[in-house]
Design a protein around this nucleic acid. Sequence first.
DNA 1: GGGCTGCCCAAACCTATGTTGGGTCGATCA
DNA 2: TGATCGACCCAACATAGGTTTGGGCAGCCC
Lengths: 249, 249
Amino acid sequence: MQDRSQTLSPMIDKLQLWRPLDPAEKRAILALPHKVEEARAHACLVREGEKPSHSCLLLEGFAFRHKVLVDGSRSISAIHMKGDIVDLQNALLGTADHSVETLTRATVAFIPREEMKRIAFEFPSVGLAMWYDTLVDGSIFREWIANIARRDAAARLAHLLCEFGLRLQAIGLGDRRSYQLPMTQEQLADATGLTSVHVNRTLMDLESRGLIARSKKAVTIADWKRMEDAAGFNEAYLHLRGQVSLSPP
Amino acid sequence: MQDRSQTLSPMIDKLQLWRPLDPAEKRAILALPHKVEEARAHACLVREGEKPSHSCLLLEGFAFRHKVLVDGSRSISAIHMKGDIVDLQNALLGTADHSVETLTRATVAFIPREEMKRIAFEFPSVGLAMWYDTLVDGSIFREWIANIARRDAAARLAHLLCEFGLRLQAIGLGDRRSYQLPMTQEQLADATGLTSVHVNRTLMDLESRGLIARSKKAVTIADWKRMEDAAGFNEAYLHLRGQVSLSPP
DNA sequence: GGGCTGCCCAAACCTATGTTGGGTCGATCA
DNA sequence: TGATCGACCCAACATAGGTTTGGGCAGCCC
């Protein structure tokens, strides 16, 4: 574990995807009160219906948001990785409308929600970056709606694989064209509105078409351009090049 | 048209669903510079790829967000009504990742995005309510993902009808059990990931099961409880009773 | 080392939804 | 008055994806 005073630095890196922060703002973030915990894989971080008093920030590992419907089926609405403020939504909204669970072993920092509100208004640049972050989450949700509503199984999975690769790359965790995917086929199914059986069929189809190669949990995308075409993928919705267009408030 | 100094009051009403505002905050909202325009039905308010410099606030009428995919199919990700700040997302994010179009004749107010940022940080209570508003939008997106991914056609449509009724009622525009639905079957299809043919079949099925009655564009829900059951509907995700749980920043 | 357990893979079969190509009706307008 | 148009409705047929069932294999624990 690194110097305690730097534990929250993944949050800085993430927010700086959206807009630059000056030294005072960074110091304020690092000084946020928090407690760090290790969570094992498949641990529940927030449960639907609870009233979380803390936001939680992913320092390492992966997690996902999901809801389970009355008939027992499950819908995954987002995948999260290092630096993501996984629970601003539930914490600010009061009562959680969905659950959050780890995908892998993870280390998370819990920050009191009052502190998140305080820093947002005391340092408008930080507040704006946080707001921007929730707006990008919204943009991703919209793309997922289109993905599930209007693309066939192969394109849906290809799209998810493109997104995952690009997001990993954006936070410096590897190459969009080759990475570890810490999800089972059943989880992929819940994230794409398919069944695990069909995810299996479809992944093998993508592989036989030479679009991807797999071994264990590793995925490699042979030809990014062809993959984008198969997915109907357009990275604009991730807003990864957005920060330049924002003038200070 | 009412007194010009009150034109933006629907925004106040909407934000007060999320948290109370004091007189100074309300005055600041009413004083926001803006220009009002009438839009006919099917008018485009924002086009994907543009860089909007203004947020637009719906004062009257209905609108929706959508994207069109490469194969020409369309996905509707949200429906909007009076008081909704339809374009905070695109305006703050810089370049629009989706389009916004009116459903009916509508009157909209355009507010410069710099003014939206200014008021959010000058009056933290207003800022928090706006942030909260974008978070509720996010919550609705997640529910739509679950709706499209995991419910069958009848439940999907029933769910949309429940949501629309409740939201109309929340802004004082009628009764959740009986209202005008300003959408064609094709638009319903694009909002539920179905085809218009199947929407037609399914609406007639819902009607034959006695869940809804229709005449022209009016829908009436015979038995709210039964409808909720058919839809797997749980209103928690709309956060309409959320404001009490928020303490001031 | 033997028995779990979780995940991947396979094949046969089924059904909800998509597709195509019509038809009707009311509103609008020349 | 008739032409045009948009929205709704209808029926026959096609198919993507769901369901069910079971096999194989690796890792893990007693």
